[in-house]
């Protein structure tokens, strides 16, 4: 039977190097004003950034929880040294919901429930079923996975709820090399945290100046801003329970309100897209991964 309860909204982890002050203000406003049900917190991209924001997360979690939102700790996608590995082991012990983004965390989370983040290579029903037996409760599929494929998986693994990456620059690749540092003539080990200069990522164009990608430290993203324009009915029919909005410097309260209104049927698809485009987006809208095409394209998907 198709679930018809309202589609929830989640705010994904902030993928960029925002300062502790900016993060605190950002989440305060989310707590007070955004129609968002759950918020992923924590540093996911680069362990070197962690010491600057570590102190802010307990306050952020308290503020969000106090506002009735579920806070989920999202974890490093590519742990590379002892310190980062130890952080992951410690986090697995915390008494709060957790999202794992690297297979390193599967044994540490054995016996507890967790979210399978979009950085884990879970592409099929057997892999998700395998993790479900070990505690996976929620799955945010890899961004390149099509709705058709997601539907095949949800049909066979209905016990795991699905959260669709539905707004923001697409996280496309990880590396051991820092491209922000490289572009500035620096190395990762002495990066001067130069990625803080680009709070939505560093624009990368082709040689003719065509917009294409964005660099965010060791991560490469799309230039374009991905969105899902599917109605609640359509999402329910696929087995999607929640949409994940990825933080950007644009007004995320407004963006989340717009998604809420659209999911509640208060604006139609055309109006939703044009209102979304009026926001100060990091790049042009794209959505074609959802239909199994090249991710940069914008295509007409039946709402």
């Amino acid at each position: 039977m198709v679930n018809s309860s309202p589609i929830e909204l989640a705010l994904g982890p902030c993928l960029f190097n925002w300062s502790a002050e900016v993060l605190l203000d950002f989440y305060k406003r989310i707590a007070e004003e955004a129609p968002i049900d759950r918020v992923y917190v924590g540093e996911v991209v680069c362990g070197k950034r962690m010491p600057f924001t570590d102190s802010v997360w307990p306050d952020v979690i308290e503020i969000l929880t106090g506002a009735g939102k579920k806070a989920v700790l999202s974890t490093l996608s590519q742990p590379v040294n002892k310190r980062e590995r130890q952080i992951l082991l410690n986090q697995a012990e915390y008494d709060m919901a957790i999202e794992i983004n690297d297979m390193s965390m599967v044994p540490a989370c054995n016996g507890r429930q967790f979210t399978v983040g979009p950085f884990l290579n879970v592409y099929n029903e057997t892999s998700l079923g395998f993790l479900a037996k070990r505690g996976a409760l929620t799955w945010c599929p890899p961004v390149e996975l099509s709705l058709d494929a997601i539907q095949k998986v949800t049909a066979l693994v209905p016990e795991v709820e699905v959260e669709l990456f539905a707004f923001g620059r697409l996280p496309l690749a990880l590396s051991s090399r820092c491209y922000h540092a490289r572009a500035h003539g620096l190395r990762k080990d002495s990066c001067q945290f130069i990625c803080e200069r680009d709070p939505d990522g560093m624009d990368v164009a082709t040689l003719e100046g065509r917009r294409f990608l964005a660099a965010n430290g060791i991560q490469t993203m799309s230039d374009a801003c991905h969105f899902s324009g599917l109605t609640s009915g359509h999402l329910n029919s696929i087995g999607i329970r929640r949409l994940r909005l990825s933080p950007h410097t644009t007004d995320m309260v407004q963006v989340s309100k717009l998604y809420r209104r659209y999911l509640d049927g208060l604006v139609d698809a055309e109006e939703f897209e044009s209102l979304l485009e009026e926001q100060n987006l990091p790049g042009p809208l794209c959505n074609a991964y959802l239909s199994g095409e090249a991710g940069w394209k914008r295509t007409a998907i039946p709402a």
Binding site: S77, Q78, F119, N121, P142, V143, E144, L170, L172, A173, L174, L213, T220, S222, Y289, A294, G295, W296
Partner: peptide, 9 residues
Amino acid sequence: GRCSLSSFA
């Protein structure tokens, strides 16, 4: 295994 650049293009 952690790169979708080619699929994006």
